[in-house]
Design a protein around this nucleic acid. Sequence first.
DNA 1: TTGTAAGCGTTATCAC
DNA 2: GTGATAACGCTTACAA
Lengths: 346, 346
Amino acid sequence: MATIKDVAKLANVAPSTVSRVIANNPRISDKTKVRVREAMGELGYHPNFIARSLANKSTEAIGLVIPSSADKAFQNPFFPEIIRGISKGVHQKHYSLQMSTGETEDEIFEGVMQMVEGKRVDGIILLYSRVDDKLTGYLKRKKFPFVIVGKPFKDIEEITHVDNDNYRAAKEVTEHLIYLGHEQIAFVGGNLNFVVTIDRLLGYEKAIRNANLVYRDEYIVHEEFLKEGGQEAVKELFSLKEPPTALVVADDLMALGVLNMLDTMGINVPNDVSVVSFNNVMLSEVSRPPLTTVDINIFQLGYEAAKNMIQIIEEPLEPMKRIIVPYRIVERQSCIEYVKEHLQSV
Amino acid sequence: MATIKDVAKLANVAPSTVSRVIANNPRISDKTKVRVREAMGELGYHPNFIARSLANKSTEAIGLVIPSSADKAFQNPFFPEIIRGISKGVHQKHYSLQMSTGETEDEIFEGVMQMVEGKRVDGIILLYSRVDDKLTGYLKRKKFPFVIVGKPFKDIEEITHVDNDNYRAAKEVTEHLIYLGHEQIAFVGGNLNFVVTIDRLLGYEKAIRNANLVYRDEYIVHEEFLKEGGQEAVKELFSLKEPPTALVVADDLMALGVLNMLDTMGINVPNDVSVVSFNNVMLSEVSRPPLTTVDINIFQLGYEAAKNMIQIIEEPLEPMKRIIVPYRIVERQSCIEYVKEHLQSV
DNA sequence: TTGTAAGCGTTATCAC
DNA sequence: GTGATAACGCTTACAA
């Protein structure tokens, strides 16, 4: 493989000159630039990134931390989509992307340490935000550049993050249900350790309280993911004396599970119960019925995360930032007006 | 940040000794090992991976190439799942994972070149196999270590790859339909540029011919992805004078689209038409009806790819390998026996 | 068993 | 404008 020295020799210049040509340094005459570039072409030269990184103390790589791959949550189309966004932002600036997952929390932590201590990356994007997360604390202590997708659990004023206004979205969506005449609205959320769950729950609660509806604990269920989660939630909810007539579900995939279970129980959506969920993942269009859901702009979430991560790396003095990506309620066919004396279908 | 020299100083040894301790070189006395390790602990020393890579000419990183992120295919849960498998294999050997996507083919190619020429990775895993793929040719020419998930289009004897026996799986699944009494069986595939589509189509064809059924061109549709794809396919197929009574669909997600469209057309699955698909992605359990599908062991596909990639890197003399991951037909509720004079429901 | 010193391929700091 | 030369932090002959 050709090195910078070979090029220098062939072009009859010093290695440092070649380096300057690579960096397109303006103090090099056009003549030699051309000469050097020719030499590079002739030798099929490509700069060695590793060597450059060492000299530079910059890897132009950013690390991506994905939540524990053990659970099925990982199969959520949310991830490919946000990775797409991140990927775009990262490529635009010619950075590369380094992934890290693990089955347990400790494995993940281990992976991140490797990246940070080994100086394999210049910054880290966290794809989730959990209550009392070890990682966040670690990165803050190390003063290592990072951004969170989602809302930090604490130190919210010090950590750059990109998020939706989940509180407001949940509130709005619940209000929509209320507006449709529903008074018995349940909330089906994911793990309460995720900040996003909390926000959405809080928004839901606010809407309920504002409308002077009773906030009932038995209408709040937190379940693991999808299949089992959706099933359990639905079973619980619909064995109550007063089952809900509408459901706010914190995730499309969970909603799919819910829809499925409702169907096998012979409960019709939207005639018997309305369902609204979050994310507007591609699948929500194709479910039966198609889901009314809030589009949180996953792609943009990722794109912004990447852009801001790189900005922090390149301009370390920049203040912390909070980027709020807009959401949009997509009405499809899983919600309808609640009619007091409606007939149970079938 | 502490370097190897700082540790050496503190432990009163030469830097090379520290290096040997890191590598756990047996020729270092236990005494000094202990002393050095203490020094490392005291200073919070962690080896710098970049420096090591430069000296070593090995990055212990492997690059992952994901198909064009532009189309929705990318949102297929197939990817998170295979990444999980790869991730596991890669972590086991303490390698890291570098992702590369792009919106166009050229962008992807560009990204791979960066990885290869810049020596950012030691090997590359291709997550798809396409007819006449530029990348494959490039990597072969460069003699850069790589493995393909799927079946190479050419040079199949020279390229290490991990795949299912898609031909046989498709054949078997079609035979199953035939066994159930179906004689009008259509094939809904993805892009014919993907080798996997070809294999599955060929298996289907073989089964049809073996059974002396007529192989009709109008029963073969290749469509883009999911929503539109599924819709188009179904529309076409069911406007024929003799619409099929069973469908072999090359992907679960596509099958979801198909199910959806069938539903809006008032065609019942499985009563009016049976559907079988591929991949056994988590969603296939939750569709209405749950899909009969072939489980291709996505996770293992990824895991094997990673393991073999690393083996090739570490033992470059190893011969090429073909790893065939077993599949398994998962029967759920989308297929039933075909009854000649059955009544169209509704 | 350990130390010395060269080298990995760049960039950066001085000179000129 | 361009050239020497010293980093960058580690590994690895070769010596001792």
